[in-house]
């Protein structure tokens, strides 16, 4: 520590900034009331915390709680004693979890893909477009995508499927049995929170028969939202993208998605 402290040094903010830009999970704990107001502890899984709340025991307890909150994706305030005692209220600590972006994987490089990709970016998704056809799977056609992968859906999912969880979505827009059957079979092996497949009711009926042949059970098929999207009467790729994104939100929140005018109760999930 130099004798003349640099008042513009912001080590906690700098580390937070770098983690957020790299989309790494991290939790920031701030004393918002009580002794040491404003003190910070930045907690990253598998690394030593940065900063201090002013007491080593408090730091230890808050670091542990922050990792738990981060794991659950929760943000909120907790109270502690001066040395981290539970059930005491000397200090109020705001623990903010920064989880990685949710991931949307879109199979099929079609017009609907570009619109859905744009809508997904609006909602904060990291967007991957995957199609086995080299001519169509180009970054030029999907500038909004974070990555464009030219590969078969099942091979792509064999690589990244384990990283997909309840906050992530897979949308199968190929509506060609050659591609969408392996895509859906691969998607069902993941823990993805939303799985939708485009196609008319007729297309989907044929697809269900093909999926049965592949050994997919009716129970597994209940996870597949097909035909994809809410019944908004959507026509254009852009409207369809809204119908799909609305269905993804309603699936996450467990809402039936009527108009708010026709319901009562809290608006926010």
């Amino acid at each position: 520590m130099s004798a003349r402290a640099d008042s513009s040094a912001t080590p906690v903010y700098d580390s937070l900034n770098a983690a957020l830009r790299a989309d790494q999970p991290i939790a920031l704990a701030t004393v918002v009331a009580g002794e040491g107001i404003g003190a910070k502890l930045l907690v990253k899984p598998g690394a030593d915390p940065i900063g201090s709340l002013g007491d080593p025991d408090l730091d230890r307890v808050v670091a542990r709680d922050a990792l738990g909150e981060l794991e659950a994706g929760l943000t909120g305030t907790r109270h502690y004693g001066q040395h981290g005692e539970a059930r005491e209220r000397d200090v109020e600590v705001f623990i903010e979890s920064f989880v990685r972006q949710p991931h949307m994987v879109i199979f099929g490089a079609v017009d609907f893909t570009a619109s859905l990709g744009r809508a997904a970016k609006l909602l904060g998704y990291r967007v991957t477009v995957c199609d086995a056809r080299e001519v169509f799977a180009t970054p030029q056609r999907f500038p909004m995508a974070d990555e464009v992968i030219c590969d078969w859906p099942d091979r792509y999912l064999a690589r990244v499927g384990a990283s997909l969880g309840p906050r992530d979505a897979i949308c199968v827009l190929t509506h060609d049995a050659k591609f969408d059957v392996p895509a859906i079979v691969g998607a069902l092996a993941t823990n993805v929170g939303y799985l939708g497949a485009m196609g008319s009711r007729g297309t989907h009926a044929k697809r269900v028969a093909r999926l049965h042949e592949e050994g997919v059970t009716d129970d597994e098929l209940t996870r597949v939202m097909a035909p994809i999207g809410l019944d908004l009467g959507a026509r254009t790729p852009e409207e369809t993208a809204v119908a799909i994104c609305a269905e993804i939100i309603a699936t996450r929140t467990g809402r039936a998605a009527p108009s708010l005018r026709d319901t009562d109760g809290p608006i926010h999930a």
Binding site: T30, V32, T75, G76, T77, F94, E96, S97, P266, I267, H268
Partner: peptide, 15 residues
């Protein structure tokens, strides 16, 4: 400035 708490209905969540 960060939202650290919310009572009742609010447009933006903590954080």
């Amino acid at each position: 400035a960060r939202v650290v708490g919310l009572d009742g209905s609010g447009p933006r969540d903590p954080g």
